[in-house]
Design a protein around this nucleic acid. Structure first.
Length: 268
DNA sequence: AGGCAGGTCGGTA
DNA sequence: TACCGACCTGCC
C-alpha cells in the first residue's frame, strides 16, 4: 500500500463536492475508504489525518504507473495553497468561503465518465444521480467502472437492464452520445492539446443532451480546463445573491469552493 | 400528496 | 437573442 503525505486535502470533502459520481464509500471499523473508478481502472483510497493511502481494490499494491495515474487524478500534483492564494489576492474569493471548505480538490477525471455522469445529472437530484450511477457501474466492464460507449449501447438496448436505470428522457441523449463515441468522436482537446475552452465548449454542445452546463462540467472535471465554470442553480444563485465573478484562469476551482459553501449554508 | 431536482430542447417574440 | 413550457422519475 502506497502512502502520501497530504496537506489540506480531504477525501470526504471531495466525495461530497458534487463533481464525481464514480466513488463508492466503504465503511470500515476505523475509517471511511473510497472505491474509486476512472475509465477502466479502479483503486481504493483511505485517509487518516495527513496520510493518504492508495491500493488496488483488493488491498494489493499498485504499480508505479498506476500510482502516477491516481496521483494526477487526485490533483496531488497541483499547488492548492498557491491557487487559493491567487484567488484571495484577486479579490474574487473571500477567506471565509475557503476556510469552511478546506480539503476540496478539482479532480482530473476520465472525460467519458464525466460526460455520462452529467448527462444523467440533468434536472435530477444528487442522491438520484448517485443511485443511477451505482446501478450503471454494476453493468460496466470491468464491473464497478462506467460502461464504455459500446457497452453502454448494449445496456441501453437491453430493455430489462435499461428499465432498471430509470433514465427517463435522458436515455436517447446517452444513446446518441455513445453512438458518436463508438464512431470515433472525441473531444477536440484530446487531439488538439491546447484547444481554447470556447472551441471545446462549442464542439461539445453539438451533441444531443449536452448544453452549456454539462459541457462546462466535461471541460472542468474531465478535460482539465480549470477556467471552466459550470453554472448550475447553486452557482447562479451565488452570482445573483452575492455577486460572484469568476477568475479567468481558476474560475472552475473557485466555483468548486463556492458551490460547497452555498450548499452548506443552505442547510442552516 | 405534490412539488422539486446540479438542464436541455424546441418553439415563440 | 432571450424567454418559456415540457420532460422521466425518485425523493423529500
Amino acid at each position: 500500500m502506497a502512502s502520501f503525505t497530504v496537506k489540506d486535502f480531504s477525501l470526504s470533502a471531495i466525495a461530497k463536492s458534487g463533481q464525481v459520481f464514480t466513488w463508492h464509500a466503504v465503511q470500515k471499523a476505523d475509517a471511511t475508504s473510497y472505491l474509486i473508478a476512472s475509465g477502466q481502472q479502479r483503486c481504493l483510497a483511505q485517509q487518516t489525518d495527513d496520510t493518504l493511502s492508495l491500493s488496488q481494490p483488493d488491498g494489493g499494491k499498485l504499480s508505479a504507473k498506476e500510482l502516477n495515474y491516481w496521483r494526477h487524478y487526485l490533483a496531488l500534483d497541483d499547488n492548492y495553497a498557491l491557487m487559493q492564494a491567487e484567488l484571495i489576492a484577486s479579490g474574487l474569493l473571500k477567506q471565509e468561503v475557503l476556510k469552511t471548505q478546506q480539503g476540496i480538490r478539482v479532480l482530473y477525471q476520465n472525460w467519458w465518465d464525466v460526460a455520462v455522469s452529467f448527462v444523467i445529472s440533468q434536472n435530477s437530484s444528487i442522491t438520484r444521480i448517485q443511485h443511477t450511477m451505482d446501478l450503471l457501474m454494476k453493468q460496466g466492464n470491468p464491473v464497478g467502472c462506467v460502461p464504455t460507449a459500446s457497452r453502454l449501447l448494449e445496456i441501453l438496448g437491453d430493455e430489462t437492464l435499461c428499465s432498471r436505470l430509470k433514465l427517463g428522457y435522458r436515455k436517447p441523449y446517452l444513446q446518441s452520445l455513445a453512438t458518436q463515441v463508438v464512431r470515433g468522436w472525441r473531444p477536440l482537446s484530446l487531439t488538439r492539446p491546447y484547444a481554447a475552452l470556447s472551441a471545446q465548449m462549442a464542439e461539445l454542445q453539438t451533441l444531443q443532451g449536452i448544453g452549456p452546463k454539462v459541457a462546462s462540467c466535461i471541460c472542468l472535471y474531465g478535460l482539465g480546463y480549470l477556467e471552466a465554470v459550470p453554472r448550475d442553480t447553486w452557482i447562479k444563485k451565488a452570482e445573483r445573491d452575492y455577486g460572484f465573478v469568476w477568475h479567468e484562469r481558476l474560475g472552475g476551482v473557485q466555483q468548486q469552493f463556492v458551490f460547497a459553501w452555498m450548499r452548506e449554508r443552505a442547510k442552516r
